[in-house]
């Protein structure tokens, strides 16, 4: 088992190196010249050339990438083009914490609502509770944020006047409720369906009948035998959902004026702020690689049938 984890960990930097290379190439050969953005109105060829040399943009691409990686390993992801004098790490760092809190809150919403609804639907399989929960979850899963956000704002802020409309105050501030709810709705729907389906499947397994024949109470049959097996696929979904904690939520953050990664991503794209775009891509890719690793390792603890190869 140890060997497996070590091998997976050794592969992680290789993956990140390749992802970084692709992003780096795309940003250099994509449309728009970063120098023009730095220079803006100053277009004197001599100055442009000097800045190009200063920033190392005249060297071959692979050399540039080498320098980038060398600095990145020391935690230096360069300087933003748009926000002069600010390092990429400081720009991302602050917002990362904001987005992670928001993501965590929405994940908690998804779990707290999704799992009970899914279990209820599975227990009332084929009856009206099941039908309404499953069709309701399909509705919310397919509803885009730019519809749910205005609607919930209308209800909770304009009519009921019980929640603040926008802004940011951290994890324990009333202003996080609306965006967390809106971000968590599709997750809730997905987890509810997932929970329902895997629970229904486990309920039909013979070992549930075996458990009943042992004379166990329905309560123990359900919580111990059914739930422990039904939660394995849900764990996978939640585990991969961890990666979204760092990617932020572009629309929701913009809508509610939250200074998170999503807003930064949008700003960086509009400004062709390549150092930020590259760093963000690496960050998100890294998060997915790590989340996958956590799921793979966790899976093997949850399901004894899976062996470490």
């Amino acid at each position: 088992m140890g060997a497996y984890i070590v091998r997976r960990l050794l592969w992680t930097p290789v993956l990140l190196f390749i992802i970084g290379l692709i992003t780096f190439f795309l940003s250099l050969y994509g449309p728009g010249d970063p120098i023009q953005i730095i220079m803006q109105q100053y277009q004197d060829p001599a100055i442009v050339q000097r800045v190009r040399e200063q920033r190392g943009l005249d060297k071959p691409v692979l050399v540039q990438y080498g320098i980038y990686i060398k600095n990145a390993l020391r935690g230096d992801f360069g300087e933003s083009f748009k926000f002069r004098g600010q390092t990429v790490s400081s720009l991302i760092g602050r917002r990362l914490w904001v987005s992670a809190q928001l993501g965590l809150a929405s994940l908690v919403v998804s779990l707290i609502l999704g799992i009970p609804f899914g279990l209820l639907a599975a227990q009332r399989q084929g009856r009206w509770q099941d039908t309404s929960i499953i069709s309701g979850s399909l509705f919310f899963y397919s509803m885009p944020v730019f519809i749910t956000a205005p609607f919930l704002l209308m209800v909770f802020v304009l009519w009921l006047k019980i929640l603040p409309s926008h802004g940011w105050g951290g994890l324990f501030d009333a202003r996080i409720i609306m965006p967390a709810l809106i971000l968590g709705l599709p997750g809730t729907a997905f987890i509810a369906r997932m929970t329902r389906n895997s629970t229904v499947e486990v309920l039909s397994q013979d070992y549930v009948r075996t458990a009943r024949s042992k004379g166990l109470s329905e309560f123990r049959v359900f919580w111990y035998h059914v739930l422990r097996n039904a939660m394995i696929p849900v764990f996978t979904v939640v585990g991969l959902g961890l990666a979204t904690l760092v990617s932020g939520a572009i629309i929701t953050e913009t809508y509610f004026g939250i200074p998170g990664i999503g807003r930064l991503t949008l700003d960086a794209f509009f400004a062709r702020d390549y150092p930020i775009i590259t760093a963000l891509t690496l960050l998100i890719a890294g998060a997915y690689v790590v989340a996958n690793l956590i799921v793979d390792i966790g899976y093997r603890f949850l399901d004894p049938r899976i062996k470490f190869e």
């Binding site: 013979d206 070992y207 097996n229 004894p304």
Partner: peptide
């Protein structure tokens, strides 16, 4: 009913699915 289960038990057909894998 659960108390009576102590007196009567079952051996099931499918030895694969009738044991909880976890």
């Amino acid at each position: 009913l659960r108390q009576v289960r102590r007196r009567m038990q079952a051996i099931f057909q499918d030895p694969y699915s009738s044991l909880n894998p976890r």
